[in-house]
């Protein structure tokens, strides 16, 4: 696997999707970075453990975490950064293969691909959910710490 090439291509693809979704111009580069980190984590997990579902979960998780951090820094909604990063993880080739096998009347093969595509979509959703929960817990903890430092203790 050619790491610099894949990094560059995923960066470019995520930036291009940023243009399609019309995100603010100054966030285009950070959006590309989100896409790149998600894709690299997905690929390296896939090459290490050979499980596309877990790899997609890891990729979506990283995309959402990075997007949350960037959203805090830019003070902008989080979806601006996460949409473009999610796209490379979408199981396009599996859905396509499922469709092609249905057309060729090979239903056993089609169901196999379709179930994989469904599981991967679920993994994307779970990755987003986990990252959201963890980031909310972290922000709550941080807010309580700053409140304590400034002397307003609620409890």
């Amino acid at each position: 696997m050619n790491w610099p090439l894949e990094a560059f291509l995923s960066f470019l693809a995520a930036g291009a999707f940023g243009i399609i979704f019309n995100i603010p111009r100054k966030t285009l580069i950070s959006c590309g970075l989100v896409g790149m980190s998600g894709w690299l984590v997905y690929r390296s997990y896939f090459l290490l453990f050979d499980d596309p579902i877990q790899a997609t979960f890891a990729g979506a998780f990283i995309v959402a975490i990075v997007a949350h951090i960037l959203a805090k820094t830019f003070k902008m909604p989080m979806i601006i950064f996460s949409v473009a990063g999610i796209i490379p993880l979408v199981p396009g080739s599996r859905a396509y293969n499922a469709m092609r096998n249905i057309v060729e009347n090979d239903y056993m093969e089609a169901v196999d691909f379709a179930v994989q595509a469904l599981m991967i979509s679920g993994a994307i959703a779970m990755g987003l959910v986990f990252a959201e929960v963890i980031m909310q817990l972290y922000f709550k903890y941080q807010a309580r710490r700053t409140q304590k430092k400034m002397g307003f203790t609620q409890e």
């Binding site: 979806i79 949409v83 979509s121």
Partner: peptide, 26 residues
């Protein structure tokens, strides 16, 4: 033809709807 179709179809994928649906359900 397979990879050409998969690559070209990617810009049509409803990515924003998927993320919004998941976040709203949550």
């Amino acid at each position: 033809p397979d990879t050409i179709i998969i690559g070209s179809v990617m810009p049509l994928v409803p990515g924003l709807l998927i993320t919004n649906a998941v976040r709203d359900m949550m």
